[in-house]
Computed example of a mutant assay.
Amino acid sequence: MNPATKLPSLLRLAAVGGAALLAALPLRAAAAVKVVTTTEGLAALAKDVGGKRADVESLSRGVQDPHFVDANPMLAVKLRNADLLVDVGLELEIGWLPPLVNQSRNADIQPGGKRRLTAASAVTVLDVPTGPVDRSRGDLHPAGNPHFLTDPRRALQVAAAIADRLAALDPGGAADYRQNLSALRSRLEPAMARWQAQLAPAKGRKIFTQHRTFTYFLDWSGIVSAGEIEPRPGVPAPPSYLAELVGRAQREGVKAIVVEDYYDTKSAEVVARHAGATLARIPGDVGAEPGTPTYEKYMDMLVSRVAGALR
């Protein structure tokens, strides 16, 4: 055969072979939407609704108090490449997030930016202070209580807001995000019924908490707050205040004290010992303890420990 006529035949064979090889390989997925959240709880919800189309990471860990996170410059690098930043809001991250956002040079994740979602905008906020807010009242959040993910109803509202924003940023994945949100709802709604059944015997009973982190959990569960171990938010308790709490516990029948595992428990232990109350250590967020890698598993543990302390 003439070499000149043989070359096109070889090229055709190579093209066919190459096409067959490509067909045998998995299709390359579209680039994942890079989602950065400020807490593990938000990251868990973003992973649930983002599915395979989202690459999600949190700036803080579940074992950390989200009020106080080290503003490490490496976190600004993560924000620089973020397609979406999801923060809690209500000034929970006020001490560390703003400088990181500024350092990131990512204009779209500034407050109000098209790639910034503040989760608090999706829920009805409780504990909004009345009157002037100043340092004499402790570390109050002027716009309201930011610890709303302890209420699974509000967690679903936040998940829906994340799904909507992802769909706006990635229209090709809108159907996937809606389907993932529906799957999350189909898991959480029966779980909520199960959790309510576990907590039903404790409804109306009173507890102390370390900080005012349980407002939304109490609103959902029907358990009642008798006060906090802190005399004012973020202010350590003097002995006289702890003695007052012991007396209140005895008068009002407070049998449990709930403390997130990132708080020191010394003051709570004093009150529990003298009041005859049970001290329940609870995970502060998703991932705070082994066995809590998802929002549902976190709530499983949270409900179990609160219900157990109030038996």
Rank of each mutant, 00 (worst) to 15 (best):
V86F: 00
P142A: 13
V303I: 14
R165P: 02
P236I: 03
L21D: 01
P129M: 10
L149A: 10
R61H: 12
L199R: 11
P3F: 06
A46W: 03
I162L: 04
A71T: 09
A202Y: 03
R311D: 14
D300Q: 12
D176M: 02
S121E: 13
L45M: 13
D87M: 06
T213I: 13
Y177H: 11
V56R: 10
G51S: 12
P236F: 04
G172V: 02
V158G: 01
A159S: 03
E252Y: 06
P290C: 07
A119E: 07
S182W: 02
V133W: 13
R178E: 06
Y298I: 06
P152D: 08
D48W: 10
E93V: 05
N81S: 14
L279S: 10
V158L: 00
A82L: 12
M301G: 01
A143F: 15
E260F: 05
L7F: 14
L184K: 00
A237L: 07
D139T: 04
R212T: 10
A14K: 09
T150A: 10
T213P: 04
S225Q: 09
A256V: 12
P290A: 15
A159C: 08
D139Y: 13
A155R: 00
F214L: 15
P236M: 03
E260G: 06
V88K: 08
R273N: 08
A288F: 01
A202H: 02
I207V: 14
Q103E: 15
S121R: 14
L169W: 03
E57Q: 15
M301F: 08
R154F: 01
A167K: 11
M301C: 06
R80I: 00
A202G: 01
I94G: 08
L199N: 07
L10R: 14
G291V: 07
I229C: 03
Q179S: 15
L310S: 02
R212H: 05
D83T: 04
R28H: 09
E228T: 14
L149M: 13
W220T: 03
S221K: 12
I162F: 03
L181R: 02
L140M: 07
I229Q: 08
M301N: 11
A280Y: 11
E252V: 07
R116D: 08
A30M: 03
G308Y: 05
D176S: 08
L7S: 07
L218W: 12
R116K: 04
V306A: 11
D219N: 15
L242Y: 08
L92V: 00
T209L: 09
Q196P: 02
P238T: 02
R178H: 05
L188D: 04
E228Y: 07
R248H: 00
T150Y: 12
M1L: 12
G227E: 04
A76V: 07
P98S: 05
D285K: 00
R153A: 07
G41L: 11
A122Y: 01
A29L: 12
E269C: 02
H211E: 14
I257K: 12
A202D: 01
L45I: 14
V101A: 06
V286H: 01
S9E: 11
P98E: 11
S121N: 13
E40R: 11
Y295P: 06
